[in-house]
């Protein structure tokens, strides 16, 4: 039986999944991929990952937030470490996007593109 920690990666861009999978695998993790929020939530239940990384904006802007709350509502995802990835700079005044009132229950938000070192460092810390 594999002792590798399992990471689920949810993003609607297949290339982003591939590139990030390579980085995570280099850190010795077993990586599972989901290309949309719905299958992502299903995989949280079927795979029981040790950590999940999900995109903030998928098909619809803010879908990531819905995905997060759904993940948090299933048993396997209740206390699992969650990283949200953002492709936009939410600090800037140029985004019309309004995050939902209730902040998503994620452990951290990283900006895309993610530096390999940063990603591996944070994943390691959250899995400790």
């Amino acid at each position: 039986m594999s002792t590798k920690k399992k990471i689920l990666l949810i993003d609607d861009d297949n290339d982003f999944l591939m590139a990030t999978k390579i980085i995570l695998e280099s850190g010795g993790y077993e990586v599972f991929l989901a290309e949309d929020g719905k299958s992502g939530v299903e995989m949280v239940e079927s795979v029981s990952p040790d950590l999940t990384i999900t995109d903030m904006m998928m098909e619809t802007w803010g879908e990531g937030f819905t995905v997060v709350s759904k993940i948090r509502s299933v048993e396997a995802g209740k206390d699992m470490p969650l990283i949200m990835l953002s492709g936009v700079d939410l600090q800037g005044p140029y985004q019309s996007f309004e995050p939902p009132d209730e902040s998503p229950k994620v452990d951290m938000v990283l900006n895309k593109p993610v530096k390999a070192d940063d990603l591996l460092k944070h994943v390691k810390r959250l899995l400790r």
């Binding site: 861009d13 591939m18 990030t20 390579i22 280099s26 593109p113 390999a116």
Partner: peptide, 18 residues
């Protein structure tokens, strides 16, 4: 326009990693 740039950056990062 931003998405593909971001992807290329992420691939380069992956390339450097492996």
């Amino acid at each position: 326009m931003r998405s593909p740039l971001l992807i290329v950056e992420q691939y380069l990062e992956a390339l450097r990693t492996v």
